[in-house]
Nucleic acid binder design. Structure first.
Lengths: 229, 229
DNA sequence: TTACTTCACGTTAAAATGACGCAAACAGGT
DNA sequence: ACCTGTTTGCGTCATTTTAACGTGAAGTAA
């Protein structure tokens, strides 16, 4: 080798996060308002550069911790983005991850945060800096297909939830109507959830039963069908 | 900023390819025997470093061209690998891609190549250098789940093929038996293929009809079911 | 009590699936 | 020309799954 291994010039490596939260029957994404160039005053996905000794997940948690105060959330790698023009400062590769969190767990609900960190309804997204719109859209698409066969919905809900709440979550994410009774049957037959025997008390009508996620659920044991548009 | 943007030290970025080929009812992967350290004389996936101005696909095609003489193949990004110890030379991030090719199109069939480039049956893989076994296994898993709902099988076959050939491909990749007649019905109902009206002549018994892939096939129009182990 | 809402559990017709049967088409031998 | 063995293409049918919808019990508010 003519040069030493690390003397070659390498692209920078960033990790960008699509953080999904569900609250008040709305699926939202957490965005940051940038204080520096490039894209100063633009909304962007939270992100950061990979440190030399860091893993992707290490970077993810560092971003989550410093910018939002969160930890211990569902994270999954999405895709790596290599468009040479995606960052005006130079060549930056972005590894996209998406997170599913329950905003209530972290006391960060829509509107309650600082001016520069905000939840946006996935249907009311502002213009995003970099190629973050592409990353966001891929993440949303991934989430939509994932909940059809993988029980990730509970990541967005409280520990205990009703079937109706799970049903509303599915309708919200998939942007379609799913028959209430067929949904219940499918979820119960698949043993997606476990009845806790308790009921939600309060202002509602008939008190619904509370369920929790069945952690022993085997993979691919259910498949929701929807009319894909 | 204290430093100029590109003065930060960055991990190197490599692209590694899992190249699948199907021949004689066998699914194989193309491996390279390394001539240099590290992993000298070990079998590894073809790979290369991302050049500063290059896209991932650019790197993929450069590797394909220089090491195997191929071009114009199906390629899809698989996953990015960040294990800090994966390359003994230092920190190297690998972006995995997998390719589906028809070996016959490139006159490279099992055994016909140089000593340092060879097809290996996916069931008879040698020990691999780096973390390439992980990359390979993820690619195989991806392929297995992908052919269940996405018509990628034809990428591995000739332009014209019989239903039986497609059926054998599915059984080979999924490592299971699928009822011949039910498979035919599903593939035809989904309009996965178009009957060309011609038949394969030759040494066989009843001459089977030749089909080609239906390029206008809409997404998610079929779903093969298998007994997952 | 009545009116209204949600929740839990059924019912039924239509569609999809899985497990087969069978005859036509072909090669090769007698 | 006839028989034999194999592959191919099409069909049948019992069972399962799905989609669409009914209904009464449990609760709140008036």
């Amino acid at each position: 080798m003519a040069k030493l291994f690390h003397e070659y010039k390498n692209p920078s490596l960033a990790v960008d996060l699509v953080i999904f939260g569900y609250h008040d029957n709305t699926l939202s994404v957490l965005l940051l308002n940038r204080k520096e160039e490039p894209f100063k005053d633009c909304w962007t996905l939270p992100g950061g550069f990979l440190q030399m000794e860091e893993t992707f997940l290490g970077t993810c948690y560092r971003i989550l911790k410093t910018k939002t105060g969160m930890d211990d959330v569902f994270l999954e790698q999405l895709y790596s983005f290599d468009n040479p023009g995606r960052d005006p400062r130079g060549r930056v590769i972005a590894v996209g991850y998406y997170a599913l969190i329950n905003p209530a767990r972290f006391n960060i609900i829509a509107g309650s945060m600082a001016n520069d960190v905000k939840w946006f309804d996935v249907h009311k997204m502002p213009k995003l800096g970099f190629d973050h719109r592409d990353i966001f859209q891929l993440a949303l698409q991934r989430l939509k297909s994932k909940i059809l066969y993988d029980p990730v919905g509970f990541e967005l809900l409280d520990e205990l939830f009703t079937i109706t709440e799970l049903h509303e979550l599915y309708e919200c994410i998939l942007e379609t109507t799913i028959d209430r009774r067929n949904f219940r049957r499918k979820i119960l037959d698949a043993e997606y959830v476990i009845n806790t025997g308790t009921k939600r008390e309060g202002l509602q009508n008939r008190h619904p039963e509370l369920y929790k996620f069945n952690k022993k659920l085997k993979k691919n044991s259910f498949q929701i069908n929807v009319n894909v548009s």
